[in-house]
Simulated scan of single mutants.
Amino acid sequence: MTDRIFNVLFLCTGNSARSIIGEVLTNHHGAGRFRAYSAGSNPKGEVHPMAIETLGSLGYDTAGLRSKSWGEFTGPDAPQFDFIFTVCDNAAGEACPVWLGHPMTAHWGIEDPAAVEGDGQGQAFINAISYLHRRIELFLSLKLSVLDGMATERKLKDIGQIEGASLKAENPQ
């Protein structure tokens, strides 16, 4: 067992829902082994209220969450990431910054719960949390110390294809 803490970054365009959820779930379930962050290419400036409400109702700590630009993580004082996951199809298709250390990347696209309006929005957030929770659970169970880089990257991409994958995640171009 290693004492190393792996840094994980979840990317989305707006950094208001899915990437925030990924950050919260990974920090909660990976405590001690993983430290997660989230950012967006074009941040909304606030975390979606339903994300905070739903995560809070499930017992997750939402204190200090904020919508932020991926530019915060490109400077010399930024953490060096081991893993970067895009969780929205738009962010997966964008030209990302060059990340120091060449982290492993995978696309874990799921549909945007914030795009659902009306009575179905609460369930859309529950679904998004459930889909991301399953991906993160599989990710955290990987024996990273015994997998080589290519095997790990293949497993990360496979995780992105499980139930709940967005249409573009299921059918990459």
Rank of each mutant, 00 (worst) to 15 (best):
E46D: 14
E46F: 12
E46H: 12
E46G: 11
E46K: 09
V47P: 02
V47N: 02
H48T: 09
P49H: 11
P49V: 15
M50V: 15
E53H: 08
T54V: 05
T54M: 02
L58G: 03
L58V: 10
G59Y: 06
G59I: 04
Y60L: 06
Y60A: 06
Y60D: 00
D61N: 14
T62V: 12
T62A: 06
T62G: 04
A63W: 01
L65R: 07
L65S: 10
R66A: 07
R66P: 01
S67V: 13
S67K: 03
K68G: 02
S69N: 11
S69Y: 04
W70S: 04
W70Q: 02
W70Y: 05
G71M: 14
E72I: 04
F73Y: 12
F73L: 10
G75K: 08
D77G: 13
P79Q: 10
P79K: 03
F81C: 02
F81S: 06
F81Y: 04
D82Q: 04
F83V: 00
F83H: 06
I84H: 01
I84S: 01
I84Q: 06
T86R: 01
T86Q: 07
T86Y: 05
V87W: 00
C88E: 06
D89H: 02
D89T: 04
A91K: 02
A91L: 07
A92N: 14
G93F: 11
E94W: 05
E94V: 08
E94T: 07
A95Q: 14
A95N: 15
C96G: 13
C96L: 13
P97C: 04
V98G: 01
V98Y: 00
W99I: 13
W99R: 08
L100C: 12
G101D: 13
H102F: 12
P103N: 06
P103T: 03
M104Q: 12
M104N: 10
M104C: 08
M104S: 13
T105A: 14
T105F: 11
T105C: 10
A106S: 02
H107S: 13
H107P: 05
H107F: 11
W108R: 05
G109S: 10
G109C: 08
G109D: 05
I110M: 13
E111M: 08
D112K: 06
D112F: 10
P113K: 11
A114Q: 08
A114R: 03
V116P: 01
G118W: 07
D119V: 02
D119C: 00
A124L: 06
A124Y: 01
F125C: 08
I126W: 00
I126H: 01
S130P: 04
S130T: 14
Y131K: 08
Y131Q: 15
L132I: 11
L132W: 02
H133T: 09
H133G: 12
H133C: 08
R134S: 12
R135N: 00
R135S: 01
R135T: 02
E137I: 11
L138A: 14
L138S: 14
S141T: 14
S141L: 15
L142A: 14
L142N: 10
K143Y: 13
S145F: 05
S145C: 11
L147P: 00
D148P: 07
G149C: 02
G149Y: 00
G149V: 02
M150T: 10
M150E: 13
M150R: 06
A151H: 03
T152R: 15
E153R: 15
E153Y: 07
R154S: 15
K155H: 04
K155C: 05
K155R: 06
L156R: 00
